[in-house]
Amino acid sequence: MNRTTYHYLAIAVLALLGVAAPYLFPAYLSQFSKLWLFIVLALTWDLTGGQMGYNSFGNVVFFGVGMYAAAAVQVALYYPLAAYTAAKGGGTEFIFNTSQFLTGLAAGLPAAGVLAALTAVALGLIILGMRGHYFAIATLGLAIAAGELASGWDLIGAGSGMVTPTPPDSLDTTTLFYYLSFALAALTFVFLAWLYSTRYGLAINAIRDDEDKAEAMGHHTIRNKVIAWTIAAFFLGMAGGIFGNLSKFIDPIDVAFNGAEIGVWMILMAILGGKGTLWGPVIGASVFYVMKELFWTYLLGWQRVALGLLIILIVVFFPQGIVGWLKERWPSRFGPTAAEMEAADAKGEA
């Protein structure tokens, strides 16, 4: 069996598992939904962090923007948003019937992606000119500022947060959100797999390896960087939209712009799995999420200590990540062989 076979086998198993999970593990469906979303978080972080070398502490901004955008659109289609948030979700007059709820989602999730992407364009044009740690720290500042700003904005509930629309009882939202999460993860994976196979994939790798050289060779580096961040933001925004509905309540600092947890988790998952690889974030997210679900509740009060320790351990002792380690250990089995590369090039030549 060669690498390509493994690759397709893994995809087939995951796809099968994804589709069948509601029948196999009905009790754990919401956990599985979050797992798929976590995979999206790790994959999109790795697009800029791993493939392009731009390590962001602030991708959680797009997650939060998407979360608020989806909820706001879902509500605003049928009720005045200000009145809804003022009632803090407690008002009995804000009822959504099945068709209203589904229409809201159908409009809200794409809106979440688009708004997050627009945010990325605006922010990216300003700060993607910065290099290395200046970029990283600027994004850290943005993530916290976003949370603080959201806590002060009355229209979206300010510091007391926002309740997402309550679905009608007749609707099985657990399964609905599960399939939405699964579909989003699948879409993100397939899209990125394709993107990395294009010349654009090479172009962002070039930025990672030596941005000055890429610039000197005439690449449109700024444009390429902004596009990568925008793509990441689009998928992240939709993930945020689903996540908000799953959580049923959006707190500006503890849920939407939760830089200290979700924002760090996505970095950690990508590094744990292997930065700059397609499968790394998927594996890293799965391993991390399972560990988190198993142990997190026992660590009450010590969760951040554990997280901090985990960060230090991974970053200091295991920076290459699981896939990176496998590639080092068995290069011919997990890395592309010269013969495979030759064949791929030959196909292009024909």
Partner: peptide, 10 residues
């Protein structure tokens, strides 16, 4: 950056 961030949240 990440390692000292880890120290910080610990």
């Amino acid at each position: 950056l990440l390692a000292t961030f880890g120290v910080s949240i610990m």
